[in-house]
């Protein structure tokens, strides 16, 4: 018998007020797997991650994590179960220093391999600037801090929303180069990217969202360029 997936999103509908952003979206993530979610602007990628993280509650459908239903759990409870989100646009706390931003990531108190020294080993530049306010970091450093902050909660599942957004390609390459070190511990990963090539390289499984619906899914190596661009642009 197959082991149950770590995360099982089952046909969720998500609304902003009266506006429906997701229509019956389903997605599964196995333990240790890297899954990419791609799609055009406004397709609903961030909404999907926010729903998984508990910032929004789906009106219909369910979300199971480690076998427990978390569809109606608030975000602060979801993170304690082991899901961390690196939000779109990084959103570090401007009133906190770099180190405080990392420490507050560990606020939920989950034990595990990720500690302050290990984050500093992964991203040495953060260690040098630990006492500066988060706003004093460059864009790439802020992204490192945002990833580090999420890792500090020792999640079983890490959700990354467009970590390459607004960064120079060389910095994006650096950050993606660290992914294996992160996933090495058996952590699962969902990455949302506009940059399809980057996503296909990093992920085993790919989902393509289009106007709130899953337009395509499959193993990264099985998907053709044409199929993807058809699903992406809806042509």
């Amino acid at each position: 018998m197959r082991e149950a997936p770590l995360l099982d999103v089952d046909a969720i509908d998500v609304f902003y007020g009266d506006f429906q952003a997701l229509f019956g979206v389903s997605l599964t993530v196995e333990r240790g797997q890297v899954v990419a979610v791609i799609g055009a602007n406004g397709a609903g990628k961030s909404t999907l991650l926010r729903a998984i993280a508990g910032l929004m509650q789906p009106r219909r459908g369910g979300i199971h994590f480690n076998g427990a239903a978390i569809g109606n759990a608030p975000a602060f409870a979801v993170v304690k179960r082991g899901i961390a989100l690196v939000p779109e646009g990084r959103r570090l706390f401007p009133s906190l220093s770099v180190e405080e931003n990392l420490r507050i990531g560990g606020q939920s108190g989950r034990p595990g391999p990720w500690t302050l020294p290990r984050i500093y080993k992964l991203f040495p530049v953060l260690s040098e600037r630990r006492h500066l306010p988060a706003t004093a970091l460059s864009g790439g450093q802020q992204q490192m801090a945002a990833i580090g902050r999420a890792l500090m909660s020792n999640p079983d599942l890490l959700l990354c929303d467009e970590i390459s957004l607004g960064l120079a390609p060389i910095i994006v390459r650096d950050i993606y180069a660290q992914l294996p070190a992160i996933v090495g511990d058996g952590m699962s990963l969902v990455i949302v990217e506009q940059d399809i090539a980057q996503a296909l390289k990093a992920a085993a499984q790919v989902y393509c969202l289009q106007e709130g619906r899953i337009a395509l899914q499959g193993a990264a190596r099985d998907l053709t360029r044409d199929a993807i661009s058809a699903a992406y642009f809806g042509v």
């Binding site: 993280a53 508990g54 910032l55 608030p74 975000a75 602060f76 993170v79 304690k80 961390a84 989100l85 939000p87 959103r91 706390f93 401007p94 009133s95 906190l96 405080e100 420490r103 507050i104 990531g105 606020q107 939920s108 108190g109 902050r149 909660s153």
Partner: peptide, 24 residues
Amino acid sequence: TALGRAFRATSDDQSVAQLMGLDT
């Protein structure tokens, strides 16, 4: 203190504070 940090973080950004496990 951790409580003070939570105060400042919540004041900065409520929804991200929730992502840190803080019940605002």
